[in-house]
Design a protein around this nucleic acid. Structure first.
Length: 245
DNA sequence: TCATTAAATTGTT
DNA sequence: AACAATTTAATGA
């Protein structure tokens, strides 16, 4: 199964530079650790905070770049992957609004080991590594958030192992889709998850053909609807608990 | 705005 | 893996 490098995932076309804008009040409302800070701490954060609009397909941070920011997703959907140049081991994780990432690498002051790519048009915020460290040594509430974040990540990791153990391909595709949806806390069904079958194949570790087949089965069960460049979730509950029919 | 062309994605074998 | 069919995005009149 030669994976012939990593197929430039979805539409990684060169997009014009992201529009950086000042942080809006509604952005701040989506930063979960902000309320945990004291007034003076918050003041510094607001001064250092940067907010960026990224288009679908844009890379937020690239493997190997030195760490400068601790990032958080304000709105949209991001995909985290470790497709290096060799690109055999591939792990994917969906990132939800309110989720912050990169603390591991920021803590150790290493280079990024992951690519973060926007699956949809998204709003990403970030604070400089120095500010991150400053908060870490100062605010208990902030530490609590980071700890919670790490714990959550561990939970996702374990869930991923569990999905790995599922032998039925259809079920694996279904559960992985549900896992991508979960963090997003969708208000209702009928949402389109913009991800290609090729990407899904890498996500679950199956061939594109098999994914296509699995999706067809899921569609036949009226759990999802296949659309060009994505799938529409019709029944999230059944998707979560899908097993072979 | 519409038609044409290129590229991306899907459906099948 | 290869191929055809379909959909979308880009381009220029």
């Amino acid at each position: 199964m030669s994976q012939a490098g990593f197929p430039s995932t979805s539409r990684a076309r060169a997009v014009q530079p992201s529009r950086s804008r000042a942080a809006q009040p509604e952005d701040l409302a989506h930063i979960p650790w902000l309320p945990a800070l004291g007034a003076d701490e918050r003041q510094r954060v607001l001064a250092d905070l940067r907010v960026v609009q990224v288009e679908a397909g844009e890379l937020v941070c690239r493997v190997g770049r030195p760490v400068t920011y601790w990032f958080g997703l304000v709105d949209g959907l991001l995909k985290m992957s470790n497709d290096s140049a060799m690109g055999i081991p591939i792990t994917f994780t969906g990132l939800s609004p309110g989720g912050w990432f990169g603390e591991g690498t920021v803590l150790k002051n290493e280079v990024y080991r992951y690519n973060i790519q926007a699956l949809r048009k998204s709003v990403v915020a970030g604070i400089p590594a120095e500010t991150f460290h400053w908060l870490l040594g100062r605010s208990i509430g902030f530490n609590r958030f980071v700890m919670n974040q790490l714990n959550e990540r561990l939970g996702q990791f374990i869930a991923a192992r569990e999905i790995d153990r599922l032998n039925h391909p259809d079920a694996r595709v279904a559960r992985s889709l549900a896992a991508l949806f979960h963090p997003v806390l969708y208000p209702g069904v009928g949402e389109v998850l913009r991800i290609t079958q090729q990407e899904l194949g890498y996500l679950v570790g199956l061939s594109r053909q098999r994914v296509n087949e699995a999706l067809a089965a899921l569609q036949a069960d009226a759990v999802i609807r296949i659309e060009y460049g994505g799938v529409r979730v019709l029944d999230l509950e059944r998707l979560r608990s899908y097993r072979r029919s």
